[in-house]
């Protein structure tokens, strides 16, 4: 029952996005713009500062992710369809999970383009250890999106939601950003130290578990008025 609702919401979001591609195009292009802005700000004599590539990658993910979250829920506001979802007798946490998976899928797709771009523009060996990189990106994206989906959903009813989303989201997701950047930077080191990666991955997994659980627990009371 729970899984069926998750699947329905996820499939619906996917169909809508495939038809318009609005969020995918704008998110990806925005992420690329972020990368370029950082390139102009940081690159000197044709090279990025050491470890800069990892930071630029994660800042682009965080910024583009906020944009995607805002747009996704703005879409549910247009014909008041979020209200229609809440009116259904379906379990509300299932609606949250469906939305979360949609956002995670979208961000992972954007990262698929971002990683080679950053590697190419900053001569960073990002693709040397693709398995580890994918794991760091996946766990980090889930953590960011878990908090972001809940906040974006509850801000649908609020005024000034566009500016409040990043204001609320960034202070809470600081551990994700630190762990993501440090984990990715460790992958770029010439001599690979699995201990460091294990530490950051463990932190990210714990963050994901704690915040997804909290979001599932609070989604119902936060969405009822």
């Amino acid at each position: 029952m729970f899984a069926r609702i998750v699947w329905l919401v996820l499939r619906k979001d996917f169909t809508v996005e495939v038809r318009s591609l609005e969020i995918a195009y704008t998110t990806v292009f925005f992420a690329i713009s972020c990368v370029l802005v950082f390139a102009f700000a940081l690159v000197q004599e044709g090279r990025a500062p050491e470890g800069g590539a990892a930071g630029i990658l994660w800042v682009a993910i965080a910024f583009a992710g906020t944009l995607a979250l805002g747009r996704t829920f703005e879409r549910e506001r247009q014909s008041d369809t979020l209200r229609a979802l809440l009116l259904a007798p379906a379990a509300r946490p299932a609606i949250y999970v469906g939305k979360l998976l949609g956002i995670v899928a979208l961000l992972l797709a954007a990262e698929l383009l971002l990683v080679p771009l950053v590697a190419f523009l900053f001569q960073a060996p990002l693709l040397v250890r693709p398995g580890w990189l994918a794991t760091v990106l996946l766990t980090g994206t889930i953590g960011f999106a878990a908090v972001g989906t809940l906040f974006a959903a509850m801000l649908v009813r609020a005024r000034s939601r566009d500016v409040l989303l990043p204001v609320l989201l960034y202070p809470i997701t600081v551990p994700v950003i630190i762990a993501g950047v440090r984990g990715t930077a460790a992958l770029l080191q010439p001599e690979f130290d699995p201990g460091i990666i294990h530490f950051w991955l463990a932190l990210l997994v714990c963050f994901d578990v704690v915040f997804v659980t909290l979001a599932l627990w609070t989604f119902e009371p936060l969405m009822t008025d």
């Binding site: 509850m154 009813r157 609020a158 409040l164 009371p221 936060l222």
Partner: peptide, 11 residues
């Protein structure tokens, strides 16, 4: 945040 921001703040 407007009306309803009490709950959101608690979250």
């Amino acid at each position: 945040g407007g009306p309803g921001s009490d709950k959101l703040g608690a979250g």
